[in-house]
Every structure is written in structure tokens, then in C-alpha cells.
């Protein structure tokens, strides 16, 4: 068995409580049952405590690396080269009507 990773609790980042989990779940549009909040908070805190070890690394002056691809993103001519396939786009919709996706009523 591997050793668990070292933990550096510098106190910069707080572990998650129930309320925070509820808030994140809401931001992510995922419904979490009340009784599941506590165990989930424990699991997520465990993961966050573990990643906190990164705080011990000196990254002053280090630029963030968002992509390993060094190339400049290519440009193309600004012309319509796709589309005209409404039926294909709608083919997988759970519900559609008159060529549109349908949603629950949003305007009173």
C-alpha cells in the first residue's frame, strides 16, 4: 500500500462544511439530498486537504500553464460552413416542438 500524501495544513483554505457543499451543489445544478450532505462534505474535505500540499511549493514568478499546446490558435475565414441541419440537432432532444427545444415555463 502506498503512503498517504503529506498534508500541509497552512490554514489558508478551510475544509468544507455542509452549507458550503449545499451551495456548490446548487451552483452545479445538482440536487443533493440533505442526508447526503454530511458524508459528501467529509469526502470532499478529504480531497481538498490532500491537495493543500501544493501550498508548500514556491511558485512565485511561475506563469500558470493552461495548455501544453504551444501553437497560436489558428484562424479561419469568417464564413458559414456548417448548419442547416435542424432535424439532426433536435433528433436527440428528450422533448421538442415545432422545431424548437422545449423547457418548463419560465415566464409567469
Amino acid at each position: 500500500m502506498l503512503p498517504s500524501a503529506p498534508l500541509y495544513r497552512l490554514g489558508i483554505i478551510m475544509s468544507l462544511d455542509k452549507e458550503t457543499v449545499k451551495n456548490i451543489a446548487n451552483l452545479a445544478r445538482i440536487k443533493v439530498a440533505d442526508e447526503a450532505l454530511e458524508p459528501l462534505a467529509g469526502e470532499l474535505s478529504g480531497i481538498l486537504d490532500w491537495v493543500e500540499q501544493l501550498n508548500a511549493i514556491d511558485t512565485d514568478g511561475v506563469e500558470p500553464l493552461a495548455s501544453v499546446v504551444d501553437v497560436t490558435l489558428p484562424r479561419r475565414t469568417d464564413v458559414v460552413d456548417d448548419g442547416g441541419c435542424r432535424d439532426k440537432v433536435l433528433a436527440n432532444a428528450p422533448e421538442s416542438e415545432d422545431g424548437y427545444f422545449t423547457v418548463p415555463k419560465v415566464v409567469e
Binding site: 501544493l54 501550498n55 511558485t59 500553464l65
Partner: peptide, 14 residues
């Protein structure tokens, strides 16, 4: 604290 920090360490790894 998390995401930017991770991206900086990612550069060190690279």
C-alpha cells in the same frame, strides 16, 4: 488558491 496554483505547479512539472 486552487486552480491558478495548480496551473503554476503544472508548469513546473512540465
Amino acid at each position: 488558491a486552487y486552480y491558478m496554483k495548480a496551473q503554476r505547479v503544472r508548469r513546473l512539472i512540465s
